[in-house]
Amino acid sequence: MTAATIVALVLLLGVAAYSCGGGTDYGAGMWDLAAGGVERGDRPRRLIDYAMAPVWEVNNVWLVFVLVITWTGFPQVFAAVFSAAWIPLTLAILGLILRGVGFAFRKPTRHPRSRLRFTALFGVSSILTPFFFAAALGAIASGRVPLGSRDATIVSSWLNPTSVAFGLVSLAATAFIAAVFLTGDAGRFGAPDLVTYFRRRSVVAAGAFMVVGAAALAVVRFDTPRLFAGLWSGGALLFTLGIPVLTVLTAVLVGRGIPRIPRVTAVGAVGATVFAWGVAQHPYILPTSLTIEQGAAPSSSLNWLVLVVVVAAILVIPPLVLLYRLDAMGALEADHDEDLKPRGST
């Protein structure tokens, strides 16, 4: 395997990790939005606040990691994607800030009406952000990112059937993975009513994910036949078939109240979705104008990147595992939470 392929794989892994980690956050935002009025939605929202707090920064770093690897390893690709998909990426980053604003403002706000307003802000931006990120990926997948930035068609590059299909799949996937994780969190915090609440939603979201996924395949088939063919051949086939298998398995396991394992299978299902796309468009990084080898930076930069990734893996993975484990064990508890909550609403 060449250095360029290794770096491309790492990149794909980063996208998959962000889709799972960041996706859980976005999905939680959607469930937060769907939780209903102030009274009815209070308990699920409280759980979401609690569950998100210790890990969201770490999840966000995956995104930064993907950007850094792209501009160092595939500089032309970075420039081309940000030129062609300027609009969705701008909207995604604005959504990301808005989300932070909504989340940060809601915590210390007491007045029910303004709380609801920030809840809406948080929820809506949780939908827009993953949609636009995925639409930008759809622009790449459907070959609408030209190399020369001047040739880009700034709107149709991302407002097209494939991009919209990608966007909708991302929404279904994030809602699904978030519901599964929140079921586990509810169990951890000892809230059986919320376990039931999110268990039901996990199963529904798994179904939605399957339906939207099938519809997206149909769209891709006529809009981007090359990608469709790729999904059904070679290594990609394994991932393509893995998606429904793992999703259904997750739904069954969650439905039966089996702890922990559904998280793994849900991560597998979302990860398989990303990998199916990535492997299907191999050897292109920008179909069909640039292959991975053509788009790669000079070899010394790539070797350096590989080294960086290895060092990162050695140094980062143990504490990362520790964090997720401590989090799962409930050893991480917000020390300052009472400080941030409105007084009187314990």
């Binding site: 850094v68 390893g73 032309q76």
Partner: peptide, 20 residues
Amino acid sequence: MGRWGGVFGSGFGIEAWAFF
């Protein structure tokens, strides 16, 4: 970034995992 990202991105490579 298109022209020089492969050169001076190296620094950011360190930054990314340090922030991680």
